[in-house]
């Protein structure tokens, strides 16, 4: 890729997850982590969530603390039906 905006999918996913967290940071504290998880469960396709969990395992993954907290409530994708 020949310019700065063409990022890898992993970079984009981290960015997107953090964007979601940024919004919920401003919402009432007690619901924030659940809300981030709920959002990702609702809108992220399983392979995106799978990539997310792969990223989560890496050191210095760049994920916002709220995303990391929310991860417990994010659904692990099951196998793709054949």
């Amino acid at each position: 890729m020949d310019s700065e905006s063409h990022k890898s999918t992993a970079t984009k996913l981290v960015y997107m997850a953090n964007q979601i967290a940024t919004f919920f940071h401003s919402q009432p504290k007690d619901e924030a982590a659940a809300a981030v998880a709920d959002h990702i469960n609702h809108f992220w396709e399983p392979r995106m969530r799978q990539q997310f969990f792969d990223i989560l395992e890496q050191q210095n993954n760049g994920l916002d603390a709220l995303v990391v907290e929310a991860a417990k409530q994010i659904r692990k994708p099951g196998p793709v039906p054949v």
Partner: peptide, 20 residues
């Protein structure tokens, strides 16, 4: 049929997945 209970890919996600 049996519709999948998981959300699918949005257009930008489709393109990312295609590149991947």
């Amino acid at each position: 049929v049996k519709i999948q209970d998981e959300p699918g890919l949005r257009i930008p996600n489709m393109l990312d997945a295609a590149v991947d």
